[in-house]
C-alpha cells in the first residue's frame, strides 16, 4: 500500500518536474507574466493611493494605508488563485498545443495522479509569482503590513487552492469537449468569478443576482478571509466563517470536477477528440 502510494507520488512528481523544466525553458514568458502581475497590482495600489485626489475627499494616512492594502490583497490573491485556475484549466489545451496530449493520455498514469501533479505545480507557480509580486511592490510603495497575520493568510491560501482546484478541474472539461472554443469558455468562467467574488470591492455592492453567485464562489471567502488576516490581523480561529465555506466548496467541487474530467475523457475517446488537433 505504502509502496503503491509512493509510486503514485513519484508519478505525480514527473509532472511537477516537467512543469519546472518548461518554466525554465519559457523563462522569457514567465518574466512577462511576472512583470504584468507586478504592473497590474502596482496600478491597483496606486489607484488606492490616489483616492483622496480622485474623490476630492480628505483621508488620513491610516485610512489610506488600509484602503491600499485592501486593494492590494484582492489583486495579489486574485493573481494567486488565477494562476492555479489557469494552469489546471489549461492542462488539456497546453498539451494539445505542444502536441503531446496523446502521449500523456496513453501513459500508464491514473488521471487523478496526473491532475495531482499538475495541481501541485500550479500552486508552486502561483506561490512563487505572488511572492515576487508582493516583494517587488513593497520596494516601490509603502504598504502597512504591521497588523498582518501571515499564518492565517497561508492557511486561507491553502484552503483557497483546494477550492479553486475543484473549480478548475471542472472548467478543464471544456477544452476537452470543445477543441476550438473550450478554453475561451473556461476563461469566461474565470471572468465571472472575478466579477462576483469581491476581489476589488465588497460583495455587498453587487446587484442581488450577482451576490447569489458570490455565495458559491470560493474566491469570495478566501479574499474576505485574507483581508481580515492581512489588514486586521485576524487569528485563524476568527476566520472559521470564511474557512468552512471554502473547504465545503472544495470538498464538493474536487470530486465533482474529477468525475466530470473522467467523464469528458471517456467521451473524448468515444468521439475521437483526444488528439493533438481538432
Amino acid at each position: 500500500m505504502i509502496a503503491r502510494l509512493s509510486g503514485q507520488i513519484g508519478l505525480a512528481y514527473a509532472f511537477v518536474d516537467r512543469e519546472v523544466a518548461l518554466s525554465k525553458r519559457y523563462w522569457a514568458w514567465e518574466l512577462v507574466w511576472i512583470v504584468y502581475g507586478i504592473v497590474t497590482s502596482l496600478s491597483v495600489a496606486l489607484i488606492g493611493r490616489a483616492a483622496p485626489v480622485i474623490s476630492g475627499q480628505v483621508m488620513d494616512e491610516a485610512t489610506l494605508d488600509r484602503f491600499v492594502l485592501y486593494l492590494l490583497v484582492g489583486s495579489i490573491a486574485w493573481r494567486f488563485l488565477g494562476i492555479v485556475f489557469e494552469n489546471v484549466t489549461e492542462v488539456i489545451a497546453w498539451e494539445r498545443w505542444e502536441g503531446t496530449i496523446e502521449y500523456t493520455f496513453m501513459a500508464p498514469v491514473h488521471r487523478i495522479t496526473h491532475l495531482l501533479g499538475m495541481c501541485v505545480s500550479s500552486v508552486i507557480r502561483a506561490s512563487v509569482f505572488s511572492t515576487i509580486i508582493l516583494a517587488t511592490i513593497l520596494l516601490f510603495l509603502h504598504v502597512d503590513l504591521s497588523q498582518a497575520n501571515a499564518l492565517s493568510a497561508l492557511v486561507l491560501l491553502a484552503v483557497g487552492s483546494l477550492a479553486f482546484i475543484g473549480l478548475s478541474m471542472g472548467a478543464a472539461v471544456f477544452p476537452m469537449l470543445w477543441t476550438e472554443k473550450g478554453l475561451q469558455m473556461a476563461y469566461i468562467v474565470q471572468a465571472v468569478v472575478l466579477l462576483v467574488s469581491g476581489v476589488y470591492y465588497p460583495v455587498d455592492v453587487l446587484p442581488g443576482w450577482m451576490q447569489a453567485l458570490a455565495v458559491i464562489s470560493p474566491a469570495t471567502y478566501v479574499i474576505h478571509g485574507l483581508r481580515a488576516a492581512l489588514v486586521d490581523g485576524a487569528e485563524i480561529s476568527a476566520l472559521w466563517s470564511d474557512v468552512w465555506p471554502a473547504l465545503l466548496i472544495g470538498a464538493i467541487s474536487i470530486p465533482l470536477g474529477l468525475r466530470a474530467f473522467l467523464f469528458a475523457e471517456r467521451y473524448a475517446k468515444r468521439t475521437g477528440r483526444l488528439k493533438r488537433s481538432g
Binding site: G7, L11, A21, G99, T100, Y103
Partner: peptide
C-alpha cells in the same frame, strides 16, 4: 507520424520525463 514532444525541452529531458511516466 508526428513526433510529439515538448518542443522547448531537450531530447534528454523529454526522455527522462517519458521514462518517469513508465516507472
Amino acid at each position: 507520424v508526428e513526433a510529439s514532444f515538448f518542443k522547448k525541452l531537450s531530447a534528454m529531458e523529454n526522455l527522462v520525463y517519458a521514462g518517469r511516466l513508465y516507472g
